[in-house]
Write a protein that binds this DNA or RNA. Structure first.
Lengths: 206, 206
DNA sequence: AGAAAACGGTAACAAATGTCACATATTGGC
DNA sequence: GCCAATATGTGACATTTGTTACCGTTTTCT
């Protein structure tokens, strides 16, 4: 396992070894729920390969996308929750086949004490997530659905490095926290404006 | 200055001394803007007395309340922003006469290295803010305005330990990210339902 | 007291989004 | 090929929120 190439921060081979030594890996298939709302957190996850999407869910069954966790990153909510023996406030789902290294909380504390670089890595991630959350607040507070939808499509395409998206309207609606018909309606409108081309399970961005 | 009684975490008198030694204090009047969006951050603020409200603003002039910073707490966004030489993504305004201790970023790094308790304090605050932000996401994504409005009033009353709120509809509208007429309309409705009693600059919660 | 500013009430309307009902199209399993 | 499941299209309508306009009341300033 080449953690060196996966983790994005600069660290010594020692941290590498310790992480693998202290932790254990698990693999998840696309769609697997990695962490459920209100679950207790005993270990912090580091994504080795694949990616995770983190959602906030309502008391009903509506949910909304917060951000993605990519290879080399960790779930910062888990980290803080774990540090303070709290439960998770979010739900994490594998976007694709994903391999995760779980490092027990108590070991994490040791690492922080011994390796300042590791702490810096944590801070950096925190900062990133915080800003992403602010973007979400911005979007749902001030932007209209059509703009959010287009942003969503562009972002997904960018990740795939591809202008064709394989996804259902239903799925999009869930991530944006709205209903399927609304997404279908807006997509049709966008198609008529020449922004996209639609197909079954498929959206082509122009 | 009795920092001991103000800061909520347990720390040694040494940290107390260092904070005051390294930092400088400034006082702000109600309504003063402490930090503007896109301003550079060179020092992290610790609220000694009073309180601050933190808002996210749109490109237009619409804005929305994120959370409050009370005495003994710090602005975590400033902290991370400062650590990575970033600009602020939020706007901070004094809610009342407020005294703030500014500690330069480079000194903060020294404190973290030397005093693990201080680090724990930072993490705790981060966690708190993150959850508050999640609550905001929840509210604007899933709740209707009337519910958000009632929550807002209840929260304010709780802070004041009082069931009478001195505030204008305009002000409420700004914090909720909507228009004055909308707030007036909903408040009137709530009054008819017997939830509140209205007066000029005044809302009494039942 | 008189003028100006701030605050709130209300109506009428527009726009955005949500909801329901049902039709049609596509796919995969058998 | 046929059926069932899944995905999408679309109309009609309800609800929520935003917008504009205007008025009366209360406060503040001078």
């Amino acid at each position: 396992m080449e953690l060196d190439k996966i983790l994005e921060f600069k660290y010594t081979p020692e941290i590498n070894e310790k992480l693998i030594d202290y932790g254990f890996t698990k693999t998840f298939a696309e769609g697997d729920v990695i962490l459920n709302e209100n679950a207790y957190i005993k270990a912090i996850p580091i994504v080795m390969s694949g990616s995770i999407r983190v959602m906030r869910t309502d008391d009903d069954d509506r949910e909304i996308l917060l951000y993605y966790i990519k290879a080399g990153e960790s779930c910062i909510m888990s980290f803080l929750g774990g540090m303070h023996h709290d439960t998770s406030k979010v739900k994490a789902i594998a976007e694709e086949p994903t391999e995760i290294l779980f490092v027990p909380i108590d070991k994490v504390n040791i690492l922080i004490k011994d390796y300042p670089e590791w702490l810096d890595y944590i801070f950096r991630l925190y900062h990133k997530r915080f800003e992403e959350l602010l973007d979400v607040v911005n979007a749902i507070a001030f932007k209209k659905l059509d703009e959010r939808l287009l942003d969503f499509i562009k972002k997904k395409c960018q990740i795939n490095d591809n202008n064709t998206l394989v996804i259902t309207h239903e799925h999009i609606a869930n991530e944006l926290g709205t209903a399927r018909v609304v997404v279908s309606r807006l997509l049709k409108q966008m198609e008529q404006e020449g922004l996209v081309t639609l197909g079954r399970n498929k959206i082509i961005l122009h």
